[in-house]
Simulated scan of single mutants.
Amino acid sequence: MDDLFADHDASLGRSEVLAEGARVLRGRAHARAAEFLELIDGVSAQAPFRNMTTPGGYPMSVDMSCCGRLGWVSDERGYRYSVTDPQTGRAWPAMPELLRGFAIACAAEAGFPDFSPDACLINRYRPGAKLSLHQDRDEPDLSAPIVSVSLGLPATFLFGGLRRSDPQQRVGLVHGDVVVWGGPARLRFHAVLPVREGEHPLTGRYRINLTFRKASRT
């Protein structure tokens, strides 16, 4: 097994510093993962997973859904948040309070006590799916952190610097791990390497990632 994922059981409950303003909270979602996944099934029944396209016309390899006041969309018009799901024409499903409360608690543990997320992006990775190096900068209030929850298959998370060319840390993320970054780390570049083939008891051949954001100005 890759050293990045070795001894993950022994790391449950630890908090690891990636940089000033960025932490990995090991295993925080583990105990409630089955509940979270049931809620995600409810969201995706209303806002089905889909492959969005980049402004350049390239399909993204991850399947995506959203819940909350706003949802993130990408198409030929660019990256942005929208109050309606362009696929259904309806408002995005409400963010389940259990998920919202969990994200708020993780943000507070990582040093961001005033987090109030109003958008949750739900990415579903099949084996081979990845997320290219990027910054999360579509939100108008960059003082709020990002809270990212990993469920299902493991993944290698790349966490870089404020420039695309900066060196990147390779961080192994397993089922239940949470990453929080904000403050001086808020605009650090990050990515997810292609997910490896595998099978998880709760998610099958998928990795599910939830990212909680404050997407509105108020």
Rank of each mutant, 00 (worst) to 15 (best):
G204V: 10
V171L: 08
K214Q: 10
N209Y: 11
E76H: 10
A34T: 09
A185P: 11
P167K: 02
T84I: 12
R217H: 09
T211L: 15
V192R: 01
L4T: 03
Q169F: 01
T53W: 02
G198T: 04
I146Y: 01
L151M: 11
D166A: 15
G101D: 14
D166I: 10
T53L: 09
L153T: 06
I146N: 01
W72G: 05
F115C: 08
G183T: 02
L193R: 14
L187H: 13
E16T: 08
R205L: 10
D2K: 12
S116M: 12
H200A: 14
A191L: 04
D63I: 05
S74W: 00
R164F: 00
L187R: 15
S143M: 07
C66Q: 07
Q135M: 04
D41V: 13
R207H: 11
L18Q: 04
A191D: 03
R28M: 12
L39K: 15
R126N: 12
D2V: 11
A191C: 02
D118N: 14
D138K: 00
F49S: 08
L99F: 09
G198L: 10
W181L: 06
F157H: 03
D3Y: 14
R77N: 07
A6Y: 08
C120Q: 01
A105L: 11
G71I: 01
H175P: 02
V178R: 12
W72K: 09
R217Q: 10
D7P: 13
S148P: 02
R90Q: 15
L12M: 13
E109S: 05
V17N: 14
A119Q: 15
V147S: 06
A47N: 01
